[in-house]
Amino acid sequence: MPITYYIVLSIVLFCIGVVGVLTRRNAIIIFMCVELMLNAVNLLLVAFSKMHNGVAMAKDPASTVGIDGQLFVFFIMVVAAAEVCVGLSIIVMVYRNTHSVDVNFLNRLKN
């Protein structure tokens, strides 16, 4: 499969994520959209990693070129998990205080 398909898919996913973050007011959905963006990037990383690795393997079957892209994906997944942890707990706290998860209520930064 040409790399272009992966790129287009991840761009579409990323844009859906961005639009979701910008337009939705429910904090949990915003959170999910952020995850969507992260995963779009992950997809791209894996795709490129595979592509570079395939080219190198043709010359030298033991090559590890491009493998670090997949490593980054793991990092991102770990960070995202940690972020979800913190984020969800904040959202829970917000819900306890305001009985809502609508981000437009959270405008205290204004002052």
Partner: peptide, 14 residues
């Protein structure tokens, strides 16, 4: 500009 709306900040960021 500092409306306190997180969405606005993100929009600006994007």
């Amino acid at each position: 500009m500092q409306s306190g709306q997180v969405g606005n900040y993100i929009l600006l960021m994007v």
